[in-house]
């Protein structure tokens, strides 16, 4: 792939030379991290959405970001993509401090990123094929038949048929939108792939399939992957590293360590068996008393 802006991206080596990160305890960032947050604060519409986040995402690994709804998972990914700027703190992506970069200077950093949005973010006026081909057409000098074979290969990768390429985004099911969005995120073979809830709304078979795909591209292409997920089982199967966002603090570490955490909230988030909740629910139904969503709140807060 010949990126037109590859020449300038040489100025930004992949090693984290720009960071003078100290090895913090378990909530810190380390030198081998591909992406590192240092005391990052984010304010959206006069509300602090992310408070003092310090964490790191290891290079070439799959990191899963867990957290309740509204805990700032999407915001974290948008920060890495430079779509929002932090109020304060330092944010290093692939060796470049992006916390105060202009859109023009972000170009070489974004060339290393592929992002799959929560809602797909596909251009609704063009069909699936053109959506996936867009970054190739804009940034490479590939010929049309090269693009065709690349896109078709990508479509098969995410489990779509070639004929699906002719459909418009509005003609797709929710799961298909996710797969097309994933295909568009990885078509340029970026170093870092950011996926916002790739599994929500997918059937178990497709979920497994996408999981395997993540594992496969992570192994074959050595991509660093950040995946936002609610699915505890999928998380534990996939993750090399975990970041858990909670209202008052964030925790990171290897999954097998975090499963045995003393914090009940973390245990709850990572628990693959929901029997406890169902027992509780049954009891409430038996006594015929009304119950509100608050009764199951312990899972999230």
């Amino acid at each position: 792939m010949r990126w037109r802006f590859r020449a300038s991206s040489d100025m930004f080596p992949n090693t984290m030379t720009g960071v003078e990160a100290t090895k913090n305890e378990r909530t810190g960032a380390s030198d081998e991290d591909h992406i590192a947050f240092h005391n990052v604060n984010v304010e959206l519409g006069e509300r602090m959405v992310i408070r003092n986040l310090t964490c790191g995402f290891p290079k070439g690994r799959i990191t899963v970001i867990l957290g309740g709804s509204g805990s700032g998972k999407s915001t974290t990914l948008r920060l890495i993509g430079g779509l929002i700027a932090p109020l304060s703190g330092k944010l290093v992506v692939a060796g470049t401090n992006i916390s105060k970069l202009s859109p023009r200077k972000l170009v070489p950093v974004r060339a290393k990123l592929g992002m799959m949005f929560q809602g797909g973010a596909l251009l609704d006026s063009t069909n699936v094929f053109d959506n996936i081909a867009l970054p190739l057409r804009e940034h490479t000098r590939m010929k049309e038949d090269e693009i065709r074979s690349e896109v078709n290969q990508c479509l098969t990768r995410v489990g779509l048929k070639q004929s699906d390429g002719l459909l418009l985004p509005r003609e797709l099911s929710g799961g298909m939108v996710k797969r097309v969005a994933l295909a568009r995120a990885i078509i340029t073979k970026p170093e870092i792939v950011l996926c916002d809830e790739p599994f929500s709304g997918l059937d178990p078979i497709t979920t497994k399939r996408i999981e395997l795909l993540f594992k496969q591209i992570n192994k074959e292409l050595g991509m660093t992957m950040l995946i936002v997920s609610h699915d505890a089982a999928a998380t534990l199967r996939l993750a090399d590293h975990l970041l858990i966002l909670m209202p008052d603090r964030s925790v990171q570490g290897p999954p097998d360590e975090l499963v045995n955490s003393s914090d009940p909230r973390i245990k709850n988030l990572l628990s693959t068996d929901v029997d406890e909740d169902f027992v509780k629910l049954d009891k409430i139904l038996d006594t015929n008393a009304g119950f509100g969503p608050g009764d199951l709140e312990s899972t999230w807060s």
Partner: peptide, 13 residues
Amino acid sequence: ATEQLDGLRMMSI
């Protein structure tokens, strides 16, 4: 509203 422009920005378009 559907993040299509942000999607383009992420692709440096």
